[in-house]
Computed example of a mutant assay.
Amino acid sequence: MRELREYLAACERDPACRAVLLTSSAGPFCQGLDYTCLLGLSPDKRRRAAEELARELKEFVRAVAGFGKPLVAGVTGACVGLGVALLPLCDLVYVSEKATLQLPYSRLGTVPEGGATHSLTTLLGHMKAGALMMTGRAITGSEALSANLATGLLWSATAYEDLIAQARQVLDNAAQIQALESTKALIRHSLRAKLEMALHSECRLLVHQWCAPEFQQRVRDLYDGGQLLLQKPGFDTQ
């Protein structure tokens, strides 16, 4: 999270950067938070690790939500947890028909993270957002498009090339990049204020839930069963 946050800050300062594309060259778009930093610790160290993870999470989400230039996401593989929570914070979201999106928080026994309780509810409505968060069911790229979680659908065979073309088209059609940035600022103004409240409430609960012995055991069981991937999320940026 820190590396991507620093990269976004550098792109914000770079006048040659007109937009940022978040995608993966192959495999998962995002595998969610890496919970291994919370395992195998004494209660005091676990508490400190949970508080540090919550702080880093808040700073990361603020950086994504506050990024002033157009932000395009391309999901061509699995997108889990925090990866899904990030999508409403992007300006354009393209998914392949083979992509899967999932919020596994009910299985983890925690509340959602990344401000998802506000951003996803605002985007999808209470019923659809609640169903995704409470059931933990994985949805396809086509379902994500139908649910209003994506801008467009990509065909897997040419997904990466089509994604680049879509991002370039947005920039080529803009008479002035400053106009795009101003439009984004106006659209995102109310979201950012309410997102901050959601982040505060979520992280306060998450620290408590992450420290619980029941959470520790659930995570171990899911890891042992191969149902959660241990690798850290990876992003390619252009």
Rank of each mutant, 00 (worst) to 15 (best):
M1A: 11
R5K: 06
E6G: 03
E6D: 13
Y7G: 00
L8I: 03
A9S: 11
C11T: 01
E12D: 08
D14R: 03
D14L: 03
A16F: 09
C17Y: 00
L22R: 00
L22V: 07
S25L: 00
S25M: 00
A26M: 01
A26C: 04
F29N: 06
C30F: 15
L33A: 14
D34G: 01
D34N: 14
C37P: 03
G40W: 05
G40E: 06
S42F: 05
S42M: 04
S42C: 12
K45L: 12
R48G: 02
E51K: 07
L53F: 09
L57N: 14
V64P: 01
F67T: 02
F67P: 02
G68Y: 01
L71V: 05
V72M: 07
A73S: 11
V75I: 05
T76H: 01
G77Y: 05
C79Y: 15
C79L: 06
L82N: 07
G83K: 02
G83A: 13
D91K: 12
V93K: 01
E97S: 09
K98A: 05
T100E: 15
T100V: 10
Q102W: 05
L103P: 01
S106Q: 09
S106K: 12
S106V: 15
R107W: 14
T110W: 02
V111K: 10
H118T: 02
S119E: 09
L120H: 05
T122L: 14
M127Y: 15
M127R: 15
K128S: 13
A129F: 09
A131P: 00
A131L: 12
T135Y: 08
G136E: 13
T140M: 06
T140V: 02
G141H: 03
S142G: 12
S142D: 14
A144H: 13
L145M: 13
S146Y: 08
N148A: 10
N148I: 00
N148W: 01
T151E: 03
G152Q: 11
L153K: 03
L154I: 00
W155G: 04
W155T: 12
A157Q: 12
A159E: 08
A159Y: 00
I164G: 02
A165H: 08
Q166N: 11
R168P: 01
Q169M: 09
V170N: 01
L171C: 04
L171N: 06
D172H: 15
D172G: 04
A174M: 09
A179N: 08
A179Y: 03
E181A: 11
S182R: 14
T183H: 10
K184F: 03
L186N: 10
H189L: 13
H189F: 15
S190F: 13
S190Y: 13
L191D: 07
L191F: 15
A193D: 11
M197R: 07
M197P: 00
E202L: 10
E202R: 08
C203Q: 11
C203V: 01
C203T: 08
Q209N: 06
W210C: 04
C211L: 06
C211I: 04
P213H: 07
Q216M: 04
Q217T: 14
R218S: 11
R218P: 11
D221T: 14
Y223R: 13
L229Q: 14
L230P: 03
K232S: 13
K232R: 05
G234M: 11
F235L: 07
D236R: 04
T237I: 15
T237R: 07
Q238Y: 07
